[in-house]
C-alpha cells in the first residue's frame, strides 16, 4: 500500500495527539488546509471536571479518543474512506498517554488500510506556523515556549533542525503558572498574568534576567524564587505591578535570546510556538524586535500554538512525503528529543 502512495495537495491526513493534557484529532488536507481540529477540553467529555484538570491518566485519554476522532471526522464533513493516512504523536510525553494515541492510530490505519506515520510532538510545534503561512522561507529560528518546554531551534529545511538553546531548569510557561498561583491571580497562569499585567507597571520591580549574555540557554527557576522572595519582603506591593514586572523579565530574556539566535544563523524570521506564544507582551516585544532587525515575526494564533492535532497532521504530511510511512511495530518514545527527530526509523 505504501510504494505507490503519492503525497500531494489533496492528501487528507487524520492527526492524533495524546502526549500530554489534551486528547486531540484533526483533519488536514495537503499539509496546511485545516479542515477540522478538535481538542478534548473544547467538548464536554470532561465538562464535569471544569476542563482544567490535566488528563494525565491514560484512562482519561481512552475515554476521549474515540469521541474526539469521531468529532474531527464529522466536523470535516468527509467520509472516513477519504482519509489517506494517519499521523500520530509518538513522543515525547507520558508513556501511558502516548500509547492510547499510538494504539488507536495504528488500529485505524490497519482497519482502513492506510499508512501510519509517527510524529515528534516538538517537531509538530514547528509546523504550526506553516499551517498559517506555508510560504515561510528557511532558515528560521523557532522560539518554542510552553509549560513543558523552552527552546530555540534553527529550522534549516523541512526535517532539518538544530537545537540552539533550551532551559536548564524551569520552562517559561511553568514560571507563569507558578507565579500566578503564588500571587493568587488564578488559573491558567499565563492568561491570568497577562490580564493582571495590563494594569501594572512593568518597571515597578527589577527582577533578574538570568543568563542574558550567556549563550542561548535559559533559566527561569531563579526568577520564580526572586518573585517569592520579593513578595515575602514586600507584602504590600500591588500584585499587578509584580505580574507586569515578572512578565517583562520573561519577555526580555526570550526576545533577547531569540534575536541573538536569529542573527547568528541569518534567519529570515522568528517563529513563535507553544502556549506562552499567546502572551500579549511577548508577541508585541518580539514583533518590535524583529521589525527593528528587518526580519519576519511569525506569530500563529493561540489555538495553533497550544497542543492540537492539526500540527501533528501537518508534520505527518511533510514526514510522509519525505520519508514515507512508519512501521506499525514502532512504539512510543517518552523522552524523544527533537534533534534526531528521525523517529527510530521505519
Amino acid at each position: 500500500m505504501t510504494s505507490q502512495f503519492v503525497v500531494g495537495q489533496d492528501t487528507v491526513i487524520l492527526g492524533i495527539e495524546t502526549s500530554c493534557d489534551e486528547t486531540a484529532a484533526a483533519i488536514v488536507m495537503g499539509g496546511n488546509d485545516v479542515v477540522s481540529s478538535v481538542v478534548s477540553s473544547q467538548i464536554d467529555v470532561h465538562a464535569e471536571f471544569g476542563g482544567v484538570v490535566p488528563e494525565v491518566a491514560s484512562r482519561a485519554h481512552l475515554e476521549s479518543i474515540n469521541p474526539v476522532v469521531r468529532r474531527a471526522i464529522d466536523e470535516a464533513g468527509i467520509d472516513e474512506r477519504r482519509i489517506d493516512a494517519i499521523a500520530c504523536t509518538v513522543g515525547p510525553g507520558l508513556i501511558g498517554a502516548l500509547l492510547v494515541g499510538v494504539s488507536s492510530a495504528k488500529a485505524l490505519a490497519l482497519a482502513w488500510d492506510v499508512p501510519f506515520v509517527g510524529v515528534n510532538h516538538l517537531e509538530a510545534h514547528l509546523y504550526a506556523s506553516f499551517l498559517e503561512d506555508p510560504t515561510l522561507e528557511f532558515p528560521l529560528v523557532v522560539l518554542l515556549v510552553s509549560g513543558g518546554h523552552t527552546m530555540l531551534i534553527e529550522m534549516q529545511d523541512h526535517g532539518e533542525y538544530r537545537l540552539l538553546g533550551r532551559t536548564i531548569d524551569d520552562a517559561a510557561g511553568e514560571a507563569f503558572d507558578k507565579v500566578a498561583r503564588y500571587l493568587d491571580l488564578g488559573y491558567p497562569g499565563g492568561p491570568a498574568i497577562d490580564r493582571a499585567a495590563n494594569d501594572g507597571n512593568p518597571e515597578a520591580v527589577k527582577f533578574p534576567r538570568a543568563m542574558m549574555d550567556d549563550g542561548l540557554n535559559f533559566s527561569f527557576s531563579g526568577l520564580k524564587t526572586a518573585v517569592v522572595n520579593f513578595v515575602r519582603k514586600n507584602p504590600t506591593v500591588d500584585s499587578v505591578d509584580i505580574a507586569a514586572s515578572f512578565q517583562q523579565a520573561v519577555s526580555d530574556v526570550l526576545v533577547h535570546k531569540a534575536m541573538k539566535a536569529a542573527r547568528e544563523v541569518g534567519a529570515t524570521g522568528v517563529v513563535l510556538g507553544g502556549g506562552v506564544a499567546a502572551n500579549s507582551r511577548l508577541r508585541a516585544d518580539l514583533q518590535a524586535a524583529c521589525a527593528a532587525d528587518g526580519i519576519g515575526a511569525f506569530l500563529p494564533g493561540r489555538e495553533m500554538c497550544t497542543d492540537n492535532a492539526a500540527m501533528i497532521a501537518a508534520a505527518g504530511w511533510h514526514r510522509l512525503r519525505a520519508l514515507g510511512p512508519s512501521r506499525l511495530d514502532i512504539g512510543a518514545f517518552p523522552s524523544m528529543p527533537l534533534v534526531e527527530a528521525g523517529i527510530a526509523d521505519g
Binding site: C20, P54, V56, P92, G93, L94, S146, G147, G148, R166, T167, I168, D169, D170, A171, G173, E174, D177, K178, S221, P334, S335
Partner: peptide
C-alpha cells in the same frame, strides 16, 4: 540538564 517535570509530570 534535569529540567522541571511540572508540566511533563515525569522525566526519565
Amino acid at each position: 540538564p534535569m529540567t522541571s517535570p511540572t508540566f511533563t509530570l515525569v522525566n526519565t
